[in-house]
Amino acid sequence: MIVTENLTKIYRVGDRDIEAVIDVGLRISDNEFVSIVGHSGSGKTTLLSMIGGLTRPTKGKVFVDGIDIWSLGDKELSKLRNEKIGFIFQFSSLIPTLTALENVMLPATFSQNKKKEVAIRAEEMLDLVELSHRIDSYPSQLSGGEQRRVAIARALVNKPKIILADEPTGDLDHETEKDVIDLFLKINKEFNTTFLLVTHNIELAMKADRKLVMDQGKIIEDPND
């Protein structure tokens, strides 16, 4: 379960303070598929980053399975990201010098998991995203959709409880976008993975169990409220 309390992020730009996220309180149950929609600059990505342990909040707390993640040290927080959270970004986030399989296996480099098991799991994940025939391809040899699917496989390789996806279909064509979202829904159901999807595409957001709307750093619409 993910819980946020008074989550706030203020950026200092020159001599001005910019409030990116203001006092967000949120509760996301296990296995829930939640989408966040909002205009560009509404604070969606910043909120996702704070929940994922990528940017420190100015104020407030984030609990993942009851753990106050921002009270953890760098090592523990990195371990939590490695084991419990999978990230999918809005751009190609693959390491260009590694093959598809190596990219998927990469999180295991930072974990205690047995490498052989991870290799098997990585191949299974590439099979799940229907890319088992491209395991030796480098990112530059893959299409945008294929790269995104490799990133999804990588996000799943350590069997995380939570997937945080930030505009994962932003630069994909409509057909590929649909495939990716269908894959998310499949993963959500099959692996009981909690999904938090940030998108500006209302149609996609509607496919989630719950749709939140953000504007000017605040959640202005939440069916649970």
Binding site: D74, S78, L106, P107, F110
Partner: peptide
């Protein structure tokens, strides 16, 4: 920088 950020996101700590 982006790659290093991604490595951190997937579990690399500062030391790594």
């Amino acid at each position: 920088q982006r790659e290093l950020g991604i490595l951190r996101a997937i579990g690399a700590d500062r030391n790594a």
